[in-house]
Computed example of a mutant assay.
Amino acid sequence: MTPALPDILRGNFMCLAIPAPPESQGEFMTGRVGVIALLSLLAAQEVERGTQARVWENNAIAAVLAEAGEVYGVQCAEVAAIGPVDLSLEALDRANAALRRGLIALHEAVENASDLARHRTIVALYGEMAERRRLDLPPLPAR
């Protein structure tokens, strides 16, 4: 399971709002606050870049499916539904999940047909998708 951004932020809230028992003070509490801070930093990056990355990714996958999907008998109903109607992360993720299923089916068909050019196109798309979704960890503090 990949937790959604609201779930992570609610978890951070609960960790800070519910007082910890006295026996969990000291290093345990320091570690707990560090994890909450790290999750908050990653959540901020997701808020900043998440919608743009998903819109780009959905359009890129839809383009690959539209170009090669029919050749290999792979259809994806979500291709026609891509558009700026609902830009919530939840809606974009729903469309993305359907598009990825179509892309995986297409990739399997492309591999079975030994279509090296399309295989390389799909692998390059995977790399670009990962780069656009990348979250950067902060540098480790010096000890």
Rank of each mutant, 00 (worst) to 15 (best):
L135K: 13
V64P: 01
V85K: 10
H119W: 09
L87A: 04
R118G: 03
A117D: 15
E90K: 14
Q75E: 14
V74A: 02
E78S: 11
A91P: 02
D115V: 01
D86G: 01
E78Q: 12
A68K: 07
H107Y: 10
L92H: 02
A97Y: 09
R134S: 06
L92C: 02
A66L: 10
D93I: 06
L99G: 00
H107N: 09
P84H: 06
Y72E: 04
I104A: 14
N59S: 12
V71E: 10
A80S: 14
V74L: 03
R134M: 08
R132W: 04
L135H: 08
N96S: 13
R133I: 07
G127T: 12
A98D: 12
L92G: 01
L125I: 08
R94P: 04
V123G: 08
D93L: 11
R132I: 04
R101F: 08
A68M: 07
R101P: 04
V71Q: 13
L103D: 00
N59R: 15
A62G: 09
L116K: 15
A109K: 12
L92D: 02
V79D: 01
E67G: 02
L87N: 05
V74C: 02
V110E: 01
A91I: 02
A97S: 13
A124G: 14
A130C: 11
A130I: 09
A77N: 10
I122E: 01
M129S: 15
E108Y: 09
R101L: 12
I61A: 10
I122Q: 01
E131I: 09
N59P: 05
E70M: 13
A77G: 09
D115H: 05
G127K: 15
V85G: 04
A95I: 03
R133W: 08
A68Q: 08
N58P: 05
E67W: 04
E67I: 04
D93C: 08
E90L: 10
R120K: 14
D86N: 07
A113T: 09
V79Y: 01
V85R: 10
L135C: 07
L65M: 05
V74W: 00
E111D: 13
A62P: 04
L65F: 03
L99D: 00
A91L: 01
I122T: 01
E90C: 07
A105M: 06
R100P: 03
C76W: 03
L106T: 03
